[in-house]
Design a protein around this nucleic acid. Structure first.
Length: 470
RNA sequence: CGGGGUGUAGCGCAGUUUGGUAGCGUAUCUGGUUUGGGACCAGAGGGUCGCAGGUUCAAAUCCUGUCACCCCGACCA
């Protein structure tokens, strides 16, 4: 029954992942390692994500802008931690035509420097603040190992950059954007996430602190899915972004940045999809319903099609020359949430056969029911089912550990999230890397540690989620 | 950067040991018959065998070099 072109995810997860990507035609490899071609099916998912997020950003007072792709080396180097963090993976432009450039230009790996430089020019007074900007663009990081959507050299993302006149307001912004990401993941992508603070070692280069949303994939591997950074005055001091405050004193501004990427497409695959191919939550699926006609049924098909389309449901009819069986498999591999089979044999009995992608259930539906309400009901149910299924799995794969031995045992048997208390020392944190590359995912801010440090046994400062990451 | 592997039709592969006309499956195209879980028959098109050099009457095959990609480590927002 399962798709013969797709390796089972329980046999070889990495192969399964690329099989699903290829079978659903989400992207194709290009001539440059780590740079992929986004094919229509993959780009449509991104456009849907963009539409929802962009609306959320605008509702919270953000405006879109666009910064250059190239950053002069001198500008890039003004803030020390950032360049130190990104230096190994930036790509440089050294020639303009045939002439070697006096100063080389880096292809943006992230745009803090450009935004900060711009902000320093335009921010004069507290009356100019806050500035709440976002840009949709691609960035480049010269990664050594690459995988479609999860880690590529060029990837698409949004990066929000804001400037505020007070620490409080900037920190509130950092929280707000993290919550927007959490809401987007849980309500639209149907992916439950853990939120928390990155450790000093894992935080963004140049940030005072970084907040993160962490999701757990089907195979128990963690995926850093979105981050929101509080910069305090680090960049404003390096780039001279100051303003006259209400007391007529010069003050450095407070900044944030936050971003999510096309990696979210990878998360959708690794959380929801199965051995039949892609599975998409209805709220993010570019195509929500497919109608498969069997035999001479065009009148009924066009009636259902119009009803659904006029109700704002994304529906298409598979009128290709292929056999019905092929169309069923095709709808499955492409992750269409609902398939309506309209066949002569069924119509004699006054029914349609409706198949849902998440459970593979086939339902006989009476032709007299209100098809629009039924499809809407089913989409809600699929959306909820996908979320609950992912959450149950994540909860089952979330463990507690009190010492290194327990952590080892857990990771070697069933990878997942491990909750364990930690003293806060970088030595203890780093030493856990020896266990299959175990890293801290985030500090749980709302929970207090009640055990000693898993590594050194001294008093704990934090309760931390650990995991193996992509 | 270290260890291993692979480059042959769009995709998946055989052929390399032992040098001798470039093959198979699938996809594509044409015609016909089909349609309830990846239809069938007949025909057709498609190749710098990763690249460069060498040995040879003759190289996908042997030798040397080189490049790319994949996997495992290391490294890494």
């Amino acid at each position: 029954m399962k798709n013969e072109f797709i390796t089972s995810r329980d046999v070889d997860f990495a192969k399964w992942y690329t099989d699903v990507v290829k079978a659903a035609k989400l992207c194709d490899y290009s001539n440059v390692k780590g740079c992929v071609v986004f094919e229509p099916a993959g780009y449509a998912i991104w456009e849907k994500m963009q539409a929802v997020l962009d609306n959320m950003f605008k509702e919270t007072g953000h405006q879109n802008v666009y910064m250059p792709m190239l950053i002069p080396e001198s500008l890039m180097k003004k803030e020390g931690e950032l360049i130190e963090g990104f230096a190994p993976e930036v790509a440089w432009v050294t020639y303009g035509g045939s002439k070697e450039l006096d100063e080389r230009l880096c292809i943006r790996p992230t745009s803090e420097t450009l935004f900060s430089d711009y902000f320093s020019n335009v921010v004069k007074s507290y009356r100019d603040l806050p500035l709440k900007y976002n840009q949709w663009c691609s960035v480049m990081r010269w990664e050594k190992t690459t995988r479609p959507f999860l880690r590529s050299r060029e990837f698409l993302w949004q990066e929000g950059h804001t400037v505020h006149s007070s620490q409080k307001e900037a920190e509130e912004e950092t929280r707000q954007m993290l919550n927007i990401y959490k809401k987007f993941f849980e309500e639209y992508l149907a992916i439950p996430v853990i939120t928390g603070k990155k450790t000093e070692k894992e935080k963004f280069a140049g940030a005072e602190y970084s907040l993160t949303i962490e999701a757990l994939m089907y195979n128990g591997v963690a995926l850093q899915s979105g981050t929101s950074h509080y910069f305090g005055q680090k960049f404003s001091k390096a780039y001279d972004i100051n303003f006259v405050n209400k007391d007529n004193k010069l003050e450095f501004a407070y900044q944030t940045s936050w971003g999510v990427t096309t990696r979210m497409i990878g998360a959708l695959i690794m959380v929801h999809s199965d051995d039949f191919g892609l599975v998409l939550p209805p709220k993010i699926a570019p195509k929500q319903v497919v109608i498969v006609p069997i035999g001479n049924v065009s009148d009924v098909v066009s009636k259902i099609y119009s009803l659904l389309k006029n109700a704002g449901i994304s529906v298409y009819v598979d009128n290709s020359e292929k056999s019905p069986g092929f169309k069923f498999k095709d709808a499955e591999v492409n992750g269409i949430p609902i398939r309506i089979e309209v066949g002569e044999r069924d119509l004699e009995k006054n029914i349609y056969t409706v198949a849902r992608r998440d459970t593979h259930e086939k339902i006989n539906v009476n032709c007299d029911i209100d098809i629009v309400s039924y499809v809407n009901f089913l989409m809600d149910d699929i959306q909820n089912n996908l979320y609950n299924r992912a959450k149950d799995r994540r909860d089952k794969m979330t463990y507690k550990a009190e010492n290194v031995e327990q952590m080892k045992k857990i990771i070697e048997n069933n990878p997942g999230f491990i909750i364990a208390d930690w003293c806060g020392s970088e030595e203890c944190e780093s030493s856990l890397r020896d266990i299959n590359g175990l890293k801290s995912r985030c500090i749980l801010e709302d929970e207090k540690p009640d055990h000693n440090c898993v590594v050194c046994g001294k008093k704990s400062k934090y309760r931390v989620v650990w995991g193996i990451q992509y």
